[in-house]
Amino acid sequence: MPRRDVRSRREETARPGTEDRLGALPDEALQHLLSFLPSDDAVRTCVLARRWRDLWKSTPALRITEPECRWKKPEDMNEFVNHLLLLRNRSPLEICELNSYPYHTMSEQRDRPCRYIQLWIRYALAHKARMSVL
Protein backbone atom coordinates (compact mmCIF):
# COMPACT_ATOMS: atom_id res chain seq x y z
CA MET A 1 0.00 0.00 0.00
CA PRO A 2 1.43 3.41 -0.90
CA ARG A 3 2.38 5.61 1.97
CA ARG A 4 -0.18 8.36 2.40
CA ASP A 5 1.12 11.73 3.29
CA VAL A 6 -0.86 14.49 4.93
CA ARG A 7 -1.72 16.22 1.69
CA SER A 8 -3.13 13.21 -0.10
CA ARG A 9 -5.11 12.23 2.96
CA ARG A 10 -6.65 15.68 2.96
CA GLU A 11 -7.75 15.33 -0.61
CA GLU A 12 -9.29 11.96 0.05
CA THR A 13 -11.40 12.97 2.99
CA ALA A 14 -13.70 15.81 2.10
CA ARG A 15 -15.86 15.40 5.21
CA PRO A 16 -15.62 18.54 7.32
CA GLY A 17 -14.62 18.14 10.94
CA THR A 18 -12.66 14.96 10.45
CA GLU A 19 -9.56 16.30 8.73
CA ASP A 20 -6.36 17.29 10.47
CA ARG A 21 -6.16 20.76 8.95
CA LEU A 22 -3.56 21.80 11.50
CA GLY A 23 -1.13 18.99 10.67
CA ALA A 24 -1.56 19.78 6.96
CA LEU A 25 -0.06 23.26 7.39
CA PRO A 26 3.57 23.74 6.37
CA ASP A 27 6.26 23.47 9.06
CA GLU A 28 6.91 27.21 9.04
CA ALA A 29 3.27 27.98 9.81
CA LEU A 30 3.25 25.48 12.68
CA GLN A 31 6.51 26.83 14.08
CA HIS A 32 5.05 30.31 13.77
CA LEU A 33 1.96 29.42 15.73
CA LEU A 34 4.00 27.56 18.36
CA SER A 35 5.91 30.78 18.90
CA PHE A 36 2.77 32.31 20.43
CA LEU A 37 2.55 29.62 23.11
CA PRO A 38 4.45 29.64 26.39
CA SER A 39 7.59 27.61 25.69
CA ASP A 40 6.65 24.74 28.00
CA ASP A 41 3.32 24.29 26.18
CA ALA A 42 5.13 24.52 22.84
CA VAL A 43 7.63 21.77 23.76
CA ARG A 44 4.88 19.49 25.04
CA THR A 45 3.12 19.49 21.65
CA CYS A 46 5.76 16.91 20.66
CA VAL A 47 3.54 14.14 22.04
CA LEU A 48 0.54 15.00 19.82
CA ALA A 49 1.68 12.95 16.81
CA ARG A 50 4.86 12.24 14.85
CA ARG A 51 4.24 15.36 12.78
CA TRP A 52 4.87 17.37 15.94
CA ARG A 53 7.88 15.56 17.33
CA ASP A 54 10.60 18.07 16.46
CA LEU A 55 8.69 21.24 15.63
CA TRP A 56 9.45 22.80 19.03
CA LYS A 57 13.17 22.65 18.22
CA SER A 58 12.88 25.27 15.51
CA THR A 59 10.23 27.45 17.09
CA PRO A 60 11.65 30.98 16.92
CA ALA A 61 10.59 31.98 20.42
CA LEU A 62 11.46 31.69 24.07
CA ARG A 63 8.42 32.58 26.12
CA ILE A 64 8.53 32.14 29.85
CA THR A 65 5.38 33.56 31.35
CA GLU A 66 3.78 33.18 34.79
CA PRO A 67 6.61 30.88 35.88
CA GLU A 68 5.25 30.57 39.41
CA CYS A 69 2.08 28.94 37.99
CA ARG A 70 4.04 26.58 35.77
CA TRP A 71 6.93 25.41 37.94
CA LYS A 72 6.81 24.47 41.58
CA LYS A 73 10.25 25.93 42.25
CA PRO A 74 12.70 28.16 40.42
CA GLU A 75 15.12 25.25 39.95
CA ASP A 76 12.53 23.43 37.81
CA MET A 77 12.15 26.47 35.62
CA ASN A 78 15.93 26.82 35.31
CA GLU A 79 16.20 23.19 34.31
CA PHE A 80 13.50 23.62 31.68
CA VAL A 81 15.00 26.73 30.06
CA ASN A 82 18.56 25.36 30.13
CA HIS A 83 17.45 22.15 28.42
CA LEU A 84 15.35 24.00 25.87
CA LEU A 85 18.18 26.31 24.83
CA LEU A 86 20.67 23.46 24.73
CA LEU A 87 18.50 21.12 22.66
CA ARG A 88 16.76 23.48 20.24
CA ASN A 89 18.10 23.82 16.71
CA ARG A 90 20.44 26.56 15.67
CA SER A 91 17.54 28.53 14.26
CA PRO A 92 17.11 32.22 15.03
CA LEU A 93 15.20 33.23 18.13
CA GLU A 94 12.95 36.08 17.13
CA ILE A 95 10.97 36.41 20.29
CA CYS A 96 12.31 36.39 23.81
CA GLU A 97 9.85 36.98 26.58
CA LEU A 98 11.20 36.32 30.03
CA ASN A 99 9.37 36.79 33.27
CA SER A 100 11.47 35.95 36.27
CA TYR A 101 10.36 33.66 39.05
CA PRO A 102 9.14 35.79 41.96
CA TYR A 103 11.61 36.14 44.81
CA HIS A 104 12.17 38.09 47.98
CA THR A 105 15.08 40.46 47.76
CA MET A 106 15.90 39.77 51.40
CA SER A 107 15.84 36.01 51.07
CA GLU A 108 19.09 34.10 51.19
CA GLN A 109 17.89 32.13 48.20
CA ARG A 110 17.31 35.16 46.06
CA ASP A 111 19.96 34.27 43.53
CA ARG A 112 18.23 31.01 42.54
CA PRO A 113 15.54 32.38 40.23
CA CYS A 114 17.95 34.73 38.50
CA ARG A 115 20.98 32.49 38.35
CA TYR A 116 20.88 31.96 34.59
CA ILE A 117 18.97 34.94 33.31
CA GLN A 118 22.04 36.75 32.03
CA LEU A 119 23.09 33.60 30.23
CA TRP A 120 19.68 33.24 28.56
CA ILE A 121 19.70 36.85 27.45
CA ARG A 122 23.15 36.39 25.96
CA TYR A 123 21.89 33.29 24.15
CA ALA A 124 18.92 35.24 22.76
CA LEU A 125 21.13 38.08 21.57
CA ALA A 126 23.52 35.65 19.92
CA HIS A 127 20.55 34.13 18.08
CA LYS A 128 19.49 37.42 16.61
CA ALA A 129 16.53 38.09 18.87
CA ARG A 130 15.32 41.63 18.50
CA MET A 131 15.24 42.81 22.04
CA SER A 132 13.83 45.59 24.06
CA VAL A 133 13.95 45.79 27.80
CA LEU A 134 10.66 47.08 29.16
Binding site: T18, E19, G23, L34, F36, L37, T45
Partner: peptide, 20 residues
Protein backbone atom coordinates in the same frame (compact mmCIF):
# COMPACT_ATOMS: atom_id res chain seq x y z
CA UNK B 1 -5.06 28.83 16.61
CA UNK B 2 -2.51 29.08 19.42
CA UNK B 3 -5.28 30.42 21.68
CA UNK B 4 -7.30 27.33 20.80
CA UNK B 5 -4.37 25.18 21.99
CA UNK B 6 -3.52 27.10 25.13
CA UNK B 7 -4.12 25.38 28.47
CA UNK B 8 -5.31 22.16 26.83
CA UNK B 9 -3.99 18.64 27.41
CA UNK B 10 -2.56 16.72 24.42
CA UNK B 11 -5.79 14.68 24.27
CA UNK B 12 -7.92 17.80 24.22
CA UNK B 13 -5.77 19.36 21.48
CA UNK B 14 -6.03 16.18 19.40
CA UNK B 15 -9.79 16.28 19.74
CA UNK B 16 -10.17 19.95 18.75
CA UNK B 17 -7.96 19.59 15.67
CA UNK B 18 -8.70 15.97 14.69
CA UNK B 19 -5.07 14.97 15.18
CA UNK B 20 -4.48 11.24 14.99
Amino acid sequence: ISEMMKGKSPDQIREVFNIK
